[in-house]
Design a protein around this nucleic acid. Sequence first.
DNA 1: AATTCGGGGTA
DNA 2: TACCCAGAATT
Length: 345
Amino acid sequence: MKTYKQKTDFLYIGVKLLKWYQTHKRDLPWRKSINPYNIWISEVVLQQTQVKQGMQHYLNFVERFPDVDTLANADEEEVLLYWKGLGYYSRALNLHKAAKQLVTDYNSEFPETYAELLKLKGVGKYTAAAIASISFHEKVAAVDGNFYRVLSRLFADDFDISNSRAFQYFSELTELIMPETDAGCFNQAMMDLGSEVCKPKNPLCSDCPLQDDCRAFAIGKINQFPVKLKKTKVENLALSYQFIYHDDQFLVKQRDTSDIWKKLFEYPKNLDFNDIDFIEEHEKVIQHKLTHRNLEISISKILIPNKCDFDKIKTENDFLSFSFTEAEQKSFPKPLHDYYIKYFS
DNA sequence: AATTCGGGGTA
DNA sequence: TACCCAGAATT
């Protein structure tokens, strides 16, 4: 680590940040209480996800699953349904597993310490710290991407944030400014500052409560921090699907837990028809960009005129079949993830 | 210690 | 386009 002065020399910065937070904190639904369940769900929704994107999913999720027991007792497929379109689907699977853990091992009550919260599936160092500090007032820093950015600018520190030791490094830097009390507010203040003021591009330094303390601002090199050396790599992937339908039904298949879209549903691939009568109507090609992949998805649209043949396909291949609504049928094809899970009354 | 998990927003 | 986001599990 670079050489810094004594810890006490920087503590006033954290105090100043807390003061700023009192009047500038965002009005967010999960800040209306410190109920650990709601804090937990919000923190998981917001992993690698911006507030604007995760907001509606959070609201829908806690409305349908308002507490640990409701979530634990729900079907996995329905939990996934409420996560549809949000990405990083292991988050939903782990939420469900952790809810079951809480019911079985903790009598449906949240453990109240950082160390114990870490044992829950899908709860890592950041999320455990967020819950412990916000809901249980434990003094532990919830170090995330906002901390990396704010601290690297504040101290004009060029430590590579893509380095696997970055978490440890910026955790130690946090100690320099973190007040003894109000850890939950401090953590959320760092998030709000990073999100609303100390933004990745074009930070609003004129609105920043820490402008006078910011080393990067002082030397006019705000845009050089944080330093990130590793670049994102993208690969191309081709998927070939068959949209096989009859009347108001079509075939989908559940993916496994490997690779992308864990346990979500997709059209069948490479299905062998043998003696079954069918009509191939047309083929549609969709370009779909993911963070780490560029997908080219080709979909053959196939009508099975004979209901018996359709049932035969289902049976022989053990596919799940869902009905779809007329509106969804008319809008075909849409982006693929819209078709994964179907529920109809 | 490095890679792999999504999808929306931003410049 | 490339990069970012209230990261965690897996390899």
